[in-house]
């Protein structure tokens, strides 16, 4: 089946099998390997991308379901090649990553969270990222980074 979608601002059109998952379309067809595959069971959130502006787990969306949609991956978030998106910048400044495997998904989920809650509380950040697992358990600095990206107060020592 023929599908067309805009990925990171660029239009693509391909013939795909209906069973092709969006994450495989992004990684294998378009070569955008920034989106990771973690659990492959809608749990870990490593494959999170924005579909028409909201976070989704791309391992649980068929490419044909995204036909006509606008998709943003980690590669498309920064405004330019030498710049970082504010959420990326905050993850860097607050050391919001250890091994980095969950990071693209965390950044995309956080971006969607901040679009819905521009000034979240720490509790809202923790609950808003419940769909993303960090096996390094580096959650404290991830939460700090998201609060910093929102321009809010960053706790010196996380409460929880």
């Amino acid at each position: 089946m023929r599908v067309g979608m805009t990925v990171n601002g660029k239009a693509h059109e391909q013939e795909v099998e209906p069973r092709l998952l969006l994450v495989h379309y992004l990684r294998d067809v378009l070569g955008l390997t920034g989106t990771n595959i973690g659990c492959d069971t809608t749990s870990c959130g490593a494959c999170t991308v924005l579909l028409d502006g909201v976070s989704v787990k791309s391992c649980t969306v068929l490419a044909v379901q995204a036909d006509g949609a606008s998709v943003t991956t980690i590669e498309g978030l920064a405004p330019g090649p030498d710049q970082l998106h504010p959420v990326q910048q905050a993850f860097r400044e607050h050391h919001g990553l250890q091994c980095g495997y969950c990071t693209p998904g965390m950044v995309m989920a956080a971006t969607s969270l901040l679009a819905e809650h521009p000034h979240p509380t720490e509790q809202q950040v923790r609950e808003g990222l419940e769909g993303n697992l960090c096996r390094c358990t580096g959650y404290h600095n991830i939460v700090k980074a998201v609060l910093a990206a929102a321009g809010g107060e960053v706790p010196k020592e996380p409460v929880a």
């Binding site: 809608t42 976070s55 787990k57 989920a109 969270l113 808003g128």
Partner: peptide
């Protein structure tokens, strides 16, 4: 239900 990504779909 689930998590934000699940609730978006």
């Amino acid at each position: 239900v689930g998590d934000p990504q699940v609730r978006h779909r």
